[in-house]
Amino acid sequence: MPAVSLGHFVALSIVLFFMGAVGVLSRKNALIVLMSIELMLNAANLAIAAFARYWLQADGQVIVFFVIAIAAVEAAIGLAILVEIFRLRRSVDLEAMSSMRE
């Protein structure tokens, strides 16, 4: 049995999630923004796994399994798009990717 309460795990996952959100909102480097998104997904996984242990349901762990699979696909596609953008613009600066805004 875990020595600390469910609330501890949930609080930690909230803190990690918002740290990832700060990275997504404030960084200009697209690579670091992608990593911050991974951080947020991971924090959500921690909360789901904690609740799965609390309710003793294996379904929660299945959901975490799905999120890990989706995160891997997201990283692969995101990085492929990033490499393609870098080929066109020689930069991964998000400020340089504003052609849709103009």
Binding site: P2, A50, V64, I68
Partner: peptide, 17 residues
């Protein structure tokens, strides 16, 4: 960070995760 969270999964007895 991801490895530390893996340790937390182990604490929650989610061995496969």
């Amino acid at each position: 960070c991801l490895i530390a969270v893996a340790g937390l999964f182990a604490m929650l007895s989610a061995h496969l995760l």
